[in-house]
Design a binder for these strands. Structure first.
Lengths: 294, 294
DNA sequence: GCATAGAATTGAGTAAAACTCATAATTTTA
DNA sequence: TAAAATTATGAGTTTTACTCAATTCTATGC
């Protein structure tokens, strides 16, 4: 293998100008350089590429083959180089987001709608982290940003705080527990608890509220969709623990009531994790900004 | 511009082996060379191409873009290099033949049919040299071989003898001139002469036979097709001067007679001219060989 | 047909790059 | 945590690409 893109560019320019001297000028090299270059190609392929004795330099069949190649390849290369420059400037890129919490969908969807308008060139996707570990996937480059509520020290990942939230117990407006200012674990011993269909250890209401107190709800029911959970709660089929952002509108409608869990409320903070090397990219920073403001 | 085919090959091999060291081995360079190469690419594009901290070396979006380019470009390059090698070995090529004599068609057509079977990869074409000068066209690379009856000394063209011929006067078997052993210019003063539609100076019967003797035929009629000329002659509409190869079968049919022109016959030799640089190519030599044997 | 200007080629010298070697730093794995 | 495997780095070397200057070639006008 010998042929390089440089050769194709020279060949095409010579062909276009019909003359070594002018081609050399356009390529910002001496005409001697071009002459040497062509000669080395001809020696390598053991075939002449140009017919020397004719005024507007003409190509041999071998030369034609290379010109044909140049015409195919050079636009591809230029296109790719442009894309790469835009990738470097952060104008072009990929934003595959992994979320571990189902409820995040509720604020993420509208944020992404706004985001897409600002960054139409960024390829956006959401993956709900059920079947895979989000942070390793981020490290391996399978996804580009992880929404998580527990930051981890890492040399190659960078966590940015998004916003604080509080998980609240949701129940029908006429539920007996509405009378209490704050909910205690034992209050749920006689209730049906509705959760997302993930392992208990990944549900804060179990890991941070019920299990430490050794309380088990009367029943557990699962649903994937936040809106379905709210519907079930509203129709008296159970109660649920959901982050506050989900409940803003639902509460206003007046059919649901919310109460804090535990004496100080079950609060947390959401973070966005990205690879440290890409932390400064404009399109990632902009997403983080939008997510903070929601 | 910076990116070269070498880079694309390295990138793709690294991607395929998932590992600098093995890629280096496959490319017959040191692993250090690859490391430097990638680094220089990353510096040029100001973007990382690989995620370093993951076992099977993974690509960043920028890296993916380049791999995509490599997958498009490398096969094209390899294909073209193969074609070129075959062009150099004379397995692939172009044989555009220019003929100045209309009558040559008669022996050329069957020769080319045989030739095409032997060299299916050679692109064959015939151009009858009416509207252009054949030898300059050969020098300029517009055609690749010229059939001509007068060789010229040239530094960049090479003439090869094909075969000798003799131009004969053709007439109906019952024509009065059949009684003569040889035809003299004055014999044609009362005849209608049928010729190809080209300038008189390019017709030997005028330039070498009639004009030196100052004789003008009673009438001149033209036709492009040899078979039509023979038909006209057979039906008594005139006589024609045609090279012997045209007449072999026609004469055998018994309806036509031929006689030599002038005391020693109007003889000549056909040559094939090619560009000296291509003289040794197998597919040209083979054509010349076939043409000689007819 | 010869002189001449415009181009291309050539060869030598130089600058630049690509590569190797040896070694250090990292990462992975046991 | 040590050993093994892999990658990165820096200095030195080789190779390649280029420039400069001189020469040769080609086309064209007189």
């Amino acid at each position: 293998m010998f042929l390089e893109i440089r050769h194709l560019r020279s060949l095409l320019t010579i062909r276009e100008t019909g003359n070594l001297a002018r081609a050399a000028e356009r390529l910002h090299v001496t005409q001697s350089a071009l002459s040497h270059q062509i000669k080395s190609l001809e020696q390598y392929f053991e075939a002449p590429l140009f017919l020397r004795n004719s005024k507007p330099l003409r190509l041999t069949p071998a030369g034609e083959k290379l010109i044909e190649l140049a015409r195919q390849v050079l636009p591809l290369v230029e296109g790719a180089e442009n894309d790469l420059r835009r990738v470097a400037r952060g104008e072009l890129g990929r934003l595959h987001i992994a979320i571990e919490c189902h409820a995040c969908f509720e604020w993420l969807a509208p944020v992404l709608n706004r985001y897409r308008r600002q960054w139409p060139q960024i390829e956006v996707d959401i993956r709900v982290g059920v079947s895979f570990e989000a942070l390793p996937a981020l490290q391996k480059g399978e996804v580009d940003l992880v929404i998580s509520s527990d930051p981890v020290k890492s040399t190659d990942l960078q966590f940015s705080e998004l916003f604080d939230y509080e998980a609240l117990l949701v129940m029908p407006a006429d539920h007996p527990l509405v009378r209490k200012k704050r909910i205690q674990p034992t209050d749920l011993a006689e209730e049906t608890l509705i959760t997302y269909p993930v392992k208990r250890q990944r549900l804060d209401v179990f890991s941070r509220f019920l299990q430490p107190a050794g309380v088990e709800p009367a029943a557990v029911r699962q649903s994937e969709l936040t809106s379905v959970i709210l519907l079930l709660v509203a129709s008296g089929r159970g109660v649920a623990a959901l982050p506050d952002w989900v409940l803003r509108e639902a509460e206003q409608a007046g059919t649901l009531a919310t109460r804090p869990l535990g004496p100080r409320g079950m609060k947390g903070t959401l973070y966005a994790a990205v690879r440290r090397a890409e932390f400064d990219t404009a399109y990632l920073q902009d997403f983080i900004g939008l997510a903070r403001r929601r």
